[in-house]
Each structure stands twice: as structure tokens, then as C-alpha cells.
Design a protein around this nucleic acid. Sequence first.
DNA 1: GTCTATACGGTGATAGAC
DNA 2: GTCTATCACCGTATAGAC
Lengths: 251, 251
Amino acid sequence: MQKKDLQSEQLILKAARRVFQRSGYGGARMQEIADEAHISKASLHYYYRSKDKLFHTVFREDIRLFLIPLIGILRDPSLSLESRIRTFVGSYMNTLLENPGLPLFIMQELSSNPQRLISLVEETVPGVEGRPVDGYTGSDASVGGVSNRESSDSTSKEANVDEIPLLAAFIRQIEDGMASGRCHKVDPEQFILSMISMCVFPFIGRPLIKVLLKKDEQQYRDFLVRREEEILLYLLRILYTNDKPKDNSRH
Amino acid sequence: MQKKDLQSEQLILKAARRVFQRSGYGGARMQEIADEAHISKASLHYYYRSKDKLFHTVFREDIRLFLIPLIGILRDPSLSLESRIRTFVGSYMNTLLENPGLPLFIMQELSSNPQRLISLVEETVPGVEGRPVDGYTGSDASVGGVSNRESSDSTSKEANVDEIPLLAAFIRQIEDGMASGRCHKVDPEQFILSMISMCVFPFIGRPLIKVLLKKDEQQYRDFLVRREEEILLYLLRILYTNDKPKDNSRH
DNA sequence: GTCTATACGGTGATAGAC
DNA sequence: GTCTATCACCGTATAGAC
């Protein structure tokens, strides 16, 4: 009965997502996933031959979810700079409030295996393929800092690969804003990183921040719900020379 | 020969720190630590009876290192608000540039076992003890509470615990600034979280950000070195009504 | 398709020689 | 104190009955 198949498969994926997000790849136990999906360990292997295969299925979907807000600010060329920022923060905080365990999980697995980022990101956001992942030296430090810049010779063939095509439009809007005097002076890349940081970190650092600010689970969640507005306030204050460009979004 | 003992002990700790930071508690292998310390697995167990004990020794020191910048902005009551911010960002970025793997490691282990935060933070920064950690159900494996804690039961008496004593002075300075009109309106707690986020996240999200911004290891490190100044710029812009309070720090 | 039972490899920890 | 050899356990994966 194929209907049952699909049901079980979805149950397994849901359970696997919970367990992997909670414990990471190494900490997750196939037995635990089987338990949460209400099947036996053997049946679990029947659907997904190995832990690796199951993990990749889950992780592929999770990283897609995590990258959607980024795609949002990239795809639509008609968006104004401020709209891009509002869209990004809004959709990111929304996604993360619904998947609080996502960021730490992604960062954890990406750090322990940076290689898989490229292929997964590539299929989610075409146009990111750049240099191969150099990072990470297995054991001791020693990043072979051989060639700082070897990409500049690529200009001979294809055109603007040096340009960070992913964020190019966004960056250009910031530069235009600075040129016209509407924006303060900022480093566009640093600004983007700050934007991402302020949204994502509160979910990664939750246990620490909860203690520092003495909040229980409910209070911390409320704190995060209110955070979207506050982040927007900060970002616009950082960027725009005239205070409060428009503040008639809510309430 | 006791000199040899201490040498080996330090070698073990250094190796263990590298391996634990790289792979987390669950992913770390005693054999790997032994190899990096150039001793046998049995000798490793001779110095530290169990993986658990070794981990706690390392983690205790690491979380202390991670919390030092926070202590810095708390201890000295004579610091001005702007000085506190400068001190915090400066010392945090400094610590993290020297220990890039620290934040992810801390967050990872704190999330998979929030219980141990309380006791460790307590002994590092007295005055944080608050409500018991409610959050999150550690999966299974992980470290049972070894708890060599018998020191501070004395704190159970004294009162004003409701006040967030840790950050109270900092928060009050922000509130005073707002009252006097020197500061924009901000939620002090959200501001503090943003400050921490902008410093810490770039180290946690390194693999992702490297791809997004198309930077190799060297470029990313330079980017992080420049970041301190940029963060300060942003924070002061968020907080202060008059632009550029003083910008004669460097160059 | 789903289960129980089991094979197999890897890992933390110990025993005992030197 | 340091090593090699070994134990005991746990987790993934498979075999085979139903």
C-alpha cells in the first residue's frame, strides 16, 4: 500500500529532522529516530539505507529553508534597498522562530564538513559557485596562505565572476545610497554580515543569552518576537542619514 | 619526574582543546587526542580517568575565556557607556580572533547540555545564579553531571536577584542616556544582544559567510580584523543621537 | 513492509608488563 | 609513567521470519 509508504516516509523525515537538529549527525542515534517515528530500527533502514543517506536528505532540505530569506533579497531586482532589508529581516526572523534549532544545526554541520556546502548551496542558489572550499585544515593551524589573489587572472575569460554576483545588486544599492548622501558610510559586506548576525545569533546563543538576561523559555521567545522591529530600527539607523525613514509598519 | 608530568598534562590539554573544539564532545575521539599529544591512549587515561573528566577540564577553561569580555564590561563601575562598548568589542574580537573555534564549540555544548552552564558560569561570574535552567531536554548521551561543586551554597540567602545584577549597571547607563536625550531610544537588552551577535556570529557562521562573500581564508581573516572598527561605528550610530561622538581611536 | 535477532566495527576504559 | 593487548559495550547495518 503506497499511501502507507509515503506516510511512513514523512514521519521518518520529521523525526529525523528533530533528532538531527537536537543532537547533530554524530550525536543522533538511529534508534532514537526510529522511536520518534514509531517504527523499528530495521524499518528505518528499509526506507533509508544508511544514516548518511537519511542525514543528507534532511540536511539538504534544512539548508534550503535556511537560505530562502537570502534568496528573497536577491531575486527581485525591483526592490528598494529598504524593502530588501525589511524583507530579509522579516522572513529570516519568521523562519527562525518556526525552526529555532535550525541555525546551530546548520552551522555545526557546515563547520565539521565545509565541503558539502558548495554542492548544496549551488543547487539551491545558482550562481554561487566560486573557488573550491579551501578551508579547513584537519589538524593543526597552518592555513596554507599561499596565494591571496589568484582569481584576478580569471578576468581574461568570462566576465564579472569577481563581483560576488549573489549580493551584487544589494551591495550596489548601498554604494549608490552612499554616493547620493542618503546613506552613511558603511562597508556593504560588513553591513550584510551584521544584518545576518543580529537575526541568527540569538537562536544559536539561546542558552547563554537566556542566562545572561535571566529569561525563561516564554520570556525569551517573546523577546525574540519583538526583536524583528528592533533589528530593523538598528539597521536603518546604521544605514540612513535621516532618522526614521518610515516607521509606520506596525502598531 | 614531576616536570615531565606537568609538560604532558599541558600537552594533553592543548591537544584535547583542539580536538574538542574541532569535533565537539561526541565527535572527539580519545585516540585522536592521544595522537595529537604524542602519547598512547592508555597514558591519556592515566592523566584523566575518563573522557568526561577531560572534557570538563577543557570546557571549564574555555567558557571562562569566552566570558572574560563580558566580565570586562561589568566589573569596572567607573567606565563610561561608550568605554564599556569599546572595551567589550575590542576584547571580544581579540579573544575570538585568537580562538576562532571557541564560539561554535561553546554554543554547541551549551545547547546539548544547558544544565552545566549554570554551575560553570556561576563560578566564573558570581552573581548570575537565577532560575534553574528549564530548556531543553538533552538527548541521551552526553555528560552526566560530574559536579565538583561544593563551594557556593552561601549565595542562597542574599536578595536583589530580580535585577539582572550582571548587566544592571550597563543597562542603567543606557537608560540614563536615553533620559538625557544623548541616546536614541533602544531596548537595552536587545542592544546588548546585538552587540554580542555582531562580534560572535562571524566566527560561528564562517563557512557560510566565506561562500556568500567569496573570500578565502586569508581574506576572511582580514575581513574580521577590520570588523572591530565597523562594529563600533554601527553600535555608536545606533545608540547616540549625535553622529561620531569621538572617532580618533586609530589611524 | 515490519519485525526480532545478530553480525560487525569502533570506542572508552582497564590489565599488566616494563 | 608509558606502553601493548584486551575487554565490554554500544551503534550501524543486515539476515531472515512473518
